[in-house]
């Protein structure tokens, strides 16, 4: 994306919608793709797959622990299962099974959480997953992905299916800004530099990627050159991209729709500390739970929009030397 073209928010499909469509494509190509869902298929959008491949869709009822381990059993028998629920339930209610039946024996299961973050809106904190990146990254051997938009979700769901080993993918409920054009290539563990910049780097994931690009435009007008990186893979991290950002721009802001504790930011900070220490700021949910409201109102209230990226950049630049 050229740095000097003003970025405009154009809404595309939700990442959960892109996931549901990608699953159908995969299902047509590979008979081993199997999908399990826990009574949320009309929300996780696995319903598309269920309609086209009813024999390969396994309704597990509201029982995520069982669903996760059934998925593990399918994978042990050679299938490529995708299990899906809201992130809050897939990760928290299935965590023990993810640890013992999937991560530890390194089973080829794909877990896709939808309705992640606070942008689900009205349903409130019981359904809002703000911990799952940290939890998923604590599972040894897991690949953990949080795509930004439709194009990247479709590509990364395909990459997950092709990857041999456990994968968690985080998707969201609301329509989200289009970041990528069709045809963009994605690789697990390879970050995408969306905006070139030399004064500071914003490393973002999910919905915050578009906000980071908006912020870079605002700051560009003031003569501040902001590099924007989409760190779609939280694990394994693109260490080279982080090292380059730290050494070449000397200041980093990490922005994510997740608890700061255990999130992408602290993972990036570890790499910065190990490679080229520099000042950092962290945008995310700070030690609290959100509430009901419209997605935009919540993102505004909890400090997850371009305005907040701009102020974090100013803060980190003030600390830069």
């Amino acid at each position: 994306m050229p740095a000097k073209t003003k970025f405009e928010i154009k809404l595309g499909p939700a990442t959960r919608e892109a996931f549901g469509r990608a699953l159908v494509e995969l299902g047509r190509e590979n008979r081993d793709i199997v999908v399990c869902d826990a009574d949320l298929s009309h929300s996780t959008m696995t319903t598309y797959f269920a309609k086209e491949f009813p024999d390969r869709f396994i309704s597990c009822g509201i029982a995520e622990a069982n669903m996760t381990a059934i998925g593990a059993g399918l994978a042990l028998a050679g299938k490529i299962p995708f299990v899906s629920s809201f992130s809050a339930f897939a990760m928290n209610k299935g965590f023990e099974q993810l640890r013992c039946c999937v991560a530890y024996p390194n089973v080829n299961l794909k877990v896709v959480g939808t309705h992640s973050g606070i942008s689900i809106g009205e349903d409130g904190p019981s359904q809002m997953s703000i911990e799952e990146i940290g939890l998923a990254c604590s599972l040894a051997g897991f690949v953990v992905i949080a795509p930004a938009d439709e194009v990247s979700t479709k590509a990364l769901v395909r990459a997950a299916a092709a990857h041999v080993g456990p994968v968690f993918i985080r998707t969201g409920r609301p329509k989200c800004a289009i970041v990528y054009q069709p045809g963009q290539k994605f690789e697990i563990g390879k970050a995408v530099e969306l905006v070139e910049g030399s004064d500071v780097t914003v490393i973002a994931s999910g919905l915050l990627v578009a906000q980071a690009i908006l912020a870079s435009d605002i700051l560009d007008a003031e003569g501040i050159s902001v590099r924007v990186i989409d760190m779609h893979t939280a694990k394994p991290l693109d260490r080279d991209a982080i090292h380059r950002a730290a050494s070449e721009t000397g200041a980093i802001v990490v922005a994510e729709e997740h608890l700061v504790d255990g999130g992408l930011g602290v993972r990036v900070a570890q790499v910065v500390a190990e490679t080229a220490p520099c000042p950092m700021e962290f945008i995310g949910i700070h030690n609290t739970y959100a509430e009901s409201g419209q997605p935009d109102e919540l993102l505004d209230k909890y400090g997850l929009i371009a305005r907040d990226v701009v102020s974090a950049v100013r803060k980190v630049l003030a600390r830069k030397r």
Binding site: V34, A69, G73, A77, K79
Partner: peptide, 17 residues
């Protein structure tokens, strides 16, 4: 408590295959 779910996954895979 996990083995029955694993067995179900294997049983489903056998049936599908």
């Amino acid at each position: 408590g996990e083995g029955l779910s694993l067995a179900i996954g294997m049983g489903l895979a056998a049936r599908l295959d």
